[in-house]
């Protein structure tokens, strides 16, 4: 009786042992990545991500936006003026649905510090020309501002080449809290990223 029982127990333990073998092992803790989509627009984007637990990572991203990128008008200020961000720093926390060591869907919560320029609209002003006559002309002004904000994103990360190479796609949005509230949302940290884990 004991032998068959042990045999059955052994057979049943095989799938259970497989499950046990699939327990997550934290392999690589650090990751650098860059947004390839941004690079095609001339923007520079660098991210560092640190694995904290089986499902959680935290990191920071820095983006320097190019004029071509800003010309896409992906963000508004107060509903209508173009909000052209020059520099943005995004601390973030990610939750990987499957785990941090496998390809996985992730959800991201991010903060933002950004420096931007806002068009102040067209104004008219009068000056006196060289001949002493008055002239009215339009003035297209711009105002520099700094803002802090909050945002969120969702994406999927693939791990290739023995889990060293990272390829991920993400969609993210962010609103500024200092000057404007949730009325205006900008597109951030969106596109295809490639990176390396170590």
């Amino acid at each position: 009786m004991t032998k068959p029982f042990l045999t059955i127990l052994f057979i049943l333990s095989i799938p259970l042992s497989n499950y046990a073998q699939e327990e997550i092992v934290l392999q690589y803790y650090n990751q650098f990545s860059s947004n390839i989509s941004y690079a095609t627009l001339g923007s520079l984007d660098i991210n560092y991500e640190r694995t904290i637990s089986k499902y959680i990572t935290a990191g920071v991203g820095v983006t320097s936006y190019s004029n071509s990128h800003n010309d896409l008008n992906l963000e508004k200020y107060d509903g209508y003026s173009d909000y052209k961000v020059n520099l943005e720093i995004n601390p973030f926390v990610r939750l990987y649905v499957h785990n941090t060591q496998k390809k996985s869907l992730f959800i991201e919560v991010l903060g933002s510090y950004n420096e931007a320029e806002v068009n102040t609209g067209r104004r008219i002003s009068r000056t006196v020309n060289n001949l002493g006559y008055g002239v009215y002309a339009y003035d297209y002004g711009a105002q520099k501002m700094e803002n802090i904000g909050l945002g969120t994103g969702v994406g999927y990360r693939f791990l290739l080449l023995k889990n060293r190479l990272v390829l991920e796609a993400q969609f993210g949005v962010r609103t500024n809290l200092k000057e404007i509230w949730i009325y205006d949302i900008g597109l951030v940290r969106t596109g295809i990223k490639a990176g390396y884990r170590f």
């Binding site: 509903g79 209508y80 869907l105 609209g121 067209r122 969120t152 969702v154 949730i182 205006d184 949302i185």
Partner: peptide, 25 residues
């Protein structure tokens, strides 16, 4: 995940329509 996605999606789409970007004074 689905619930979070619904919340995020509604957050994005409930912003008011901005005024016409071509308004000229």
């Amino acid at each position: 995940i689905a619930l979070i996605g619904i919340v995020l999606g509604s957050l994005f789409w409930t912003q008011c329509s901005p005024p016409d970007d071509d308004y000229i004074n």
